[in-house]
């Protein structure tokens, strides 16, 4: 009998993997509605920005009772386009939504092959945050004007660190360059895989300036390790103490938005139901708290309005990416 113990342990272990791996095969049962079972596809690895967003949404949707079982499935890879490809091929599956955002549009534009967001059903744009341009504390640049002057003088020697290529950080750098008369191709952009690395590159003085999400920098700005020069919001941000690019005299605005899309062929009723779920989530107090905690700005836009926004945003980002020479 003793000999069997390891065998049993081993089989139990295998069963556990199998159960976890089968997660995304489940939930496709007929007769269910998004109200009983809903899957959110986070097209990023655990720990990524979209994953965090998906899990926040999961939490609130479940607690508000908008849907009774909500699960998050991670399909990481290629700026979210792997997840997009999978969802775009799901036909009329009614119980699934994909987390999307600015970075995915950039990823689609750069990949030039594969699925685009046109092959999905737009559900809602939900929340925004912004990129912020920072310099190390001992940098000679006190304002955006100082930085721009030095940048125009020597674009190559003024390296800017930021997140991955084609993401919002890169796009903001390119747009700002174009706006102050620097060919976007001359922008010396150093890509890092995530905001954390950009922060450490600022602390180690590796680049002249850095661009990343405000959340990544917030504490370091507060203790004075790095200095914020401008934020990429459209409207002035009260209480933040950082001017927008526009206020500082450079006409650039771009938001890092997050939203949800569904498979392409779902029925109008299903779409209305999904939109209703998202609206219930967004209207809740718990979601207010979530927005506050993550420093996200509410930017709710549903259905066809969101569809129109997606189209305009795709065109805009494709143009920038082309100008950047990617």
């Amino acid at each position: 009998m003793r000999r069997r113990i390891p065998l049993i342990l081993f089989s139990a272990a295998s069963a556990a993997v199998f159960g976890l791996a089968a997660v995304d095969a489940s939930g496709g049962g007929a007769g269910a509605t998004p109200r009983t079972a809903l899957t959110l596809v986070a097209p990023a690895a655990p720990g990524g920005g979209w994953d965090a967003f998906a899990r926040e949404a999961q939490q609130v949707i479940r607690d508000e009772g908008a849907s009774s079982t909500v699960q998050v499935v991670n399909v990481p890879g290629a700026a979210g386009t792997i997840g997009l490809g999978q969802v775009a091929q799901m036909g009329d599956r009614h119980d699934i939504m994909l987390v999307t955002g600015t970075v995915m549009i950039g990823g689609v534009a750069m990949a030039t092959s594969g699925e685009t967001l046109e092959h999905t059903t737009p559900i809602a744009r939900i929340a925004d945050d912004y990129a912020v341009l920072v310099v190390p504390a001992d940098s000679p640049y006190e304002t955006l004007d100082d930085f721009v002057a030095a940048w125009q003088e020597d674009p190559g020697g003024t390296a800017i660190a930021g997140g991955s290529l084609g993401g919002i950080d890169h796009l903001v750098a390119g747009l700002a360059g174009a706006e102050v008369g620097i060919d976007p191709r001359d922008v010396n952009y150093i890509a890092y895989p995530g905001g954390g690395e950009v922060v450490s590159s600022m602390l180690s003085n590796s680049a002249a300036a850095g661009i990343s999400g405000l959340n990544e920098f917030r504490d370091q700005i507060e203790v004075g390790n790095i200095r914020a020069l401008a934020v990429s919001a459209e409207e002035p941000q009260e209480g933040l103490g950082i001017p927008t690019f526009r206020e500082a005299g450079v006409d650039v605005a771009m938001s890092n938005w997050r939203g949800l899309v569904a498979p392409p062929d779902i029925s109008d009723e299903t779409r209305a139901e999904l939109i209703a779920i998202v609206e219930e989530m967004q209207a809740s107090d718990a979601w207010r708290a979530t927005l506050d905690r993550n420093n996200w700005t509410d930017s709710m836009l549903v259905g066809d309005e969101f569809g129109a926004f997606l189209e305009a945003e795709s065109t805009r980002i494709e143009t920038i990416i082309e100008e950047l020479g990617l």
Partner: peptide, 22 residues
């Protein structure tokens, strides 16, 4: 430092933030 040096650390960073610990 708030620097996540691994995927697990990044995940935990998100978890800490959920509880309002930055």
């Amino acid at each position: 430092l708030g620097l996540p040096t691994s995927a697990t650390a990044a995940m935990m960073l998100a978890a800490f933030q959920q509880y309002g610990m930055q």
